[in-house]
Simulated assay, not measured.
Amino acid sequence: MSIKLPGRTNLPTLSNKALPASRDRLMPVAYAGGLLAVGAALLIAKPRFGHVPPPNRMGDGPRRSRLRRAAQRGRDGVQAFAPTNVTDSLGRSLILGGVALLLARVLDEVAGRDGQ
């Protein structure tokens, strides 16, 4: 069984026509669907490599120095905004991006072509 590779004499000819409009119009929708799927998979799976340990690993006991007490209070205040799983944040961002892309594409279709 032999495989015939294209040579100089049997190369396919490429036409100069543009891609069909339907393919060009559907690619953003497919891309948005991919973003939504990957984002949802990250939110559901919660992979272990994205887990972030809590920042109070040195303990919560009172500190003697004013600077260290201020740093401890600051750490506890900022901890509320820190994610516990980084992949959750990535998943939410991908979902928001996918929804925004899909919504922009739908509104673009509703707006129609120029002059119509």
Rank of each mutant, 00 (worst) to 15 (best):
P53C: 11
L67F: 12
D60P: 03
R23C: 01
A41V: 02
L26Y: 11
R66V: 04
N16S: 12
P47S: 13
L35H: 09
R64K: 15
L103E: 01
S22D: 05
G115H: 15
L67D: 09
L90R: 02
G50I: 06
D76A: 14
L43E: 04
D76E: 09
L103G: 00
D76P: 01
P55F: 15
D24C: 08
P6F: 08
R68Y: 10
Q79K: 14
I44E: 12
P28I: 07
A30K: 01
I3R: 11
L94D: 07
R92F: 15
L103M: 07
R66M: 05
N85C: 02
V86T: 13
M27V: 10
R8Y: 10
G77I: 02
D60M: 07
L103C: 07
G50T: 09
A21E: 15
R57E: 12
A41I: 02
A37E: 02
D24Y: 09
R92L: 12
V106G: 02
R73A: 05
V52P: 01
G33V: 02
G97T: 05
V86S: 07
L5S: 09
F49N: 03
A21Q: 15
V78Q: 00
L36Q: 10
A32G: 14
G74S: 10
A32D: 07
L94C: 09
V99C: 10
N16L: 14
P12Q: 10
D108A: 06
L101E: 11
V78S: 01
L42R: 06
R66A: 06
N85T: 10
